[in-house]
């Protein structure tokens, strides 16, 4: 049961959140047939990395905001959490 810091509400038990998957970069021109492989990769393939992963979380039992966490998939160290806007 890891602790996650919601950028809005603060540190909470992970049970309050819903995991939203790895952050994936959406291909720029998905409809072009030249990008078939990139589109399939985006839809179906996960990097499933061992190491620091950027991932989505939704504060379901709290403020209802989506945010990104950078978590090490082995040591469970959560380096930071932030709203998507602040990464732009």
């Amino acid at each position: 049961m890891i602790l996650l810091t919601c950028p809005n509400c603060g540190e909470r038990n992970v049970a309050e959140f819903r995991f939203g998957g790895e952050c994936k970069k959406r291909p720029a021109n998905p409809e072009e047939s030249a990008s078939d492989a990139a589109w399939v990769d985006y839809l179906y393939l996960k990097e499933n990395k061992l190491g620091m992963q950027q991932e989505w979380w939704y504060h379901r039992a709290g403020c209802g905001r989506w945010f990104i966490a950078e978590r090490h998939t082995n040591t469970q160290v959560v380096e930071k959490t932030y709203f998507w806007e602040s990464s732009q």
């Binding site: 819903r18 939203g20 989505w56 939704y58 379901r60 209802g64 905001r65 989506w66 709203f83 998507w84 806007e85």
Partner: peptide, 11 residues
């Protein structure tokens, strides 16, 4: 609801 919120909050 969660999906629409995700779209609105992620770009």
């Amino acid at each position: 609801y969660e999906e629409i919120e995700w779209y609105l909050q992620s770009g």
